[in-house]
Design a protein around this nucleic acid. Structure first.
Lengths: 220, 220
DNA sequence: TTGAACCTTAACGCCAGCTTAAAATGTGCT
DNA sequence: AGCACATTTTAAGCTGGCGTTAAGGTTCAA
């Protein structure tokens, strides 16, 4: 899961990014509206955190332009003023959620998690696929109700699969969502990771579609 | 566990904070509604004690604004007058409990403890995880029914783990809840604390998820 | 058959976390 | 107050796990 944080206040940006990384997201950061707009257009994010008061180009204008282009990634708006008016404008423009500054990191995390789930068409904090279970609140994965011990990267990979049930996902999409801004295209890290996960989940759990990608399968 | 006390009477604030600290909470204090509102928004508390008669901004207005933003932390209201009317208003606005001044410290502690438990989805005052038992009323911890002698910080750490069963908890989340207002980001205090606790509980009781956090494990 | 895509394993280097000791701070007692 | 002891924090060196790279093997489709 990869998140884009667009926030000009360096300190807030740092805190938010680090909180997100702590719970297993890959995070890119932009410090003005123009840069944020570019990244949101070119990279693929599972959620975007957008400050309204940005230099160069306002947050609302960035959001508006994305929505006009038909881009539908979930956006959480941050705003310094908690006004009724601003909140309505933001949501009308196409934001999915709104959070007034200052805010508590854990609430931000909860809202982002909800957005990511919603974006994945899920609504429950515990995702299930066959024998595999993923509890997003406790950050734990289970296989047949036994806890799986996954490393940081393995967890990210499994999490991405669980958020996209039944989907065939290409290697480039995986590395785009698992790693932060810098796609080393020629590298077999994903293959190695998939291999590691297969060893822990059982080989049949991840199916290969040659030339197209991988799929987490529910069947035994 | 971290508590926020919002109370303009310095003497009461001091007594309440010190009683809470005595039983192992980290406590932040605010002396008016504005400051209290800010802290409640930016920090993460496991419960908040809120006086109604506050300068600058009333307690009810602070509570109302939190609830409007969807913030769900447990709030215990303090009020000078024990009127039927005021109690109802407070609870309607989203308070979780109500206590009329003057009150006994013991009762306040019991109510706060109940709120913290409820916030953690627990209902029993004695928490159990494998061989480890924590009696929140007597503030004592047991390992295989033998009392453990824990220092203040060790108790806080264990308590936070016990209130979040099965969860993988990052170092930053731990330090946010164990320490009062000031997040020293680069310091290994948590690592040292974990080491101390492991020495007393047995090394296998706390599991490290490298790059993600720690988990208190129930299994032997 | 041939090449491309994918699998598997091993090895290496870095950094998160472990450990220990000493310094700082706190607490209780006379 | 002043001293002794306990607790907490800082600091520093070490260790091993994890992620990456790399190399060789295997499968699949044309």
């Amino acid at each position: 899961m990869k998140i884009l944080v667009i926030e000009d206040d360096q300190e807030i940006a740092r805190q938010v990014s680090s909180a997100l990384r702590d719970v297993g997201y890959a995070v890119d950061t932009a410090y003005d509206g123009e840069e944020g707009h570019f990244l949101g257009d070119t990279e693929s994010y599972d959620a975007i955190i957008l400050d309204l008061g940005l230099p160069v180009r306002s947050g609302l204008s960035v959001l508006e332009s994305w929505r006009k282009d038909g881009r539908i990634m979930p956006v959480l708006i941050l705003s310094a003023r908690d006004t009724w008016r601003e909140k309505v404008t933001g949501l009308r423009t196409g934001a999915d959620d709104y959070l007034a500054k200052p805010f508590e990191m854990e609430e931000m995390l909860a809202r982002v998690e909800a957005l990511v789930r919603r974006g994945a068409g899920q609504s429950n904090p515990v995702l299930v696929c066959g024998d595999i279970k993923l509890d997003t609140t406790t950050q734990k994965a289970y296989l047949k109700n036994e806890t799986l011990s996954l490393t940081s990267m393995e967890y990210r990979l499994l999490s991405y699969f669980m958020h996209h049930p039944e989907a065939v996902i290409s290697k480039t999409e995986l590395s785009e969502h698992l790693y932060e801004y810098d796609a080393d295209k020629d590298s077999n890290t994903i293959e190695v990771l998939i291999n590691k996960l297969r060893n822990k989940l059982g080989a049949s759990c991840i199916r290969t579609y040659r030339g197209r990608g991988y799929q987490l399968t529910a069947n035994v």
